[in-house]
């Protein structure tokens, strides 16, 4: 518990006494709970931990009509609460407002062929952002989801330097009215979480669900480790491609039809 020790380093003796007093002092420390005491709150079903048995991933169909990507972006904003932080400063600023997922248009300059597709955190198996993070805030869950542990993020932005996909944003302004399931705060880095809070409950990420509701399966989500899952079948059926596969980072997001 380094946190706790550090906490006492900065305290004056007076504060320390006060803390002991508040915490019930030595006397209280001896009080033991009778074993088996039932507490009032009934614990909701505990789920997890995430294990390596799963490898969450996505398959994105770049041949889908362009409009669906705008829908995916809006769904993400609504679910995670990004996209309106500038409301406080009053002006939208494309350069500093976070973008967890964005629509990218590509064109082959020789043939003129075009495509458009969404780009977000690719949830790499060998994520450069995790390697470079000095505190370990940038992390990969056992099931392959790459997250920022905002509790220990110091806002150094080295992960943003390292990410080949520009998938992360830095929160430039104070944030208000965060969603209870997605706490966000100024001075830390954030990005697509593959909607862990939903996935852990057995739901689909918000963008996938929104597209499904609109009758599109342009983004498919599932367990790449399970050969019977829809996504595994699709990945073995179509020739898929991953962005900058040459870098060896092994993204968990596959594309087809680029």
């Amino acid at each position: 518990m380094t946190d706790k020790t550090m906490n006492t380093v900065d305290s004056s003796p007076v504060d320390a006494t006060k803390r002991t007093l508040l915490k019930g002092g030595v006397a209280a420390a001896v009080i033991t709970l009778a074993p088996g005491i039932t507490l009032r709150t009934v614990e909701a079903a505990v789920t997890g931990p995430a294990t390596q048995a799963k490898r969450w991933g996505m398959l994105i169909d770049a041949t889908a009509p362009e409009g669906v990507w705008d829908l995916a972006v809006e769904a993400c904003k609504a679910e995670q609460g990004w996209g309106s932080d500038h409301n406080k400063s009053g002006k939208a600023n494309a350069a500093t407002d976070p973008q967890w997922i964005r629509k990218v248009s590509i064109k082959n300059p020789k043939t003129g062929a075009k495509a458009s597709l969404p780009v977000m955190c690719q949830h790499c198996a060998n994520p450069p952002c995790v390697d470079v993070c000095p505190t370990g805030a940038s992390m990969k869950r056992e099931d392959g989801i790459v997250l920022v542990d905002k509790h220990i993020c110091i806002g150094c932005r080295y992960c943003m330097m390292a990410c080949p996909y520009s998938a992360r944003s830095f929160v430039h302004e104070p944030v208000e009215m965060q969603k209870p399931h997605m706490p966000r705060g100024k001075g830390t880095v954030e990005g697509c979480t593959m909607c862990v809070h939903r996935v852990d409950k057995g739901q689909q990420p918000a963008c996938v669900e929104a597209l499904n509701k609109a009758g599109s399966d342009a983004i498919m989500f599932g367990d790449l480790n399970d050969p019977k899952s829809d996504i595994s079948r699709a990945v073995s059926k179509y020739v898929t491609q991953r962005i900058r596969a040459d870098l060896g980072v092994e993204p968990g997001v596959h594309y087809r039809g680029i």
């Binding site: 946190d3 706790k4 507490l39 997890g48 931990p49 992390m139 862990v196 852990d200 409950k201």
Partner: peptide, 29 residues
Amino acid sequence: PIDVMRRDHFEFLKHQRDETLREGIRGKK
């Protein structure tokens, strides 16, 4: 119990926050 809360609430919170975020354990109290 209240005396336990007073003494250890931050340990509970920090433990749960690491479990939730880093290990994916959800639904604890």
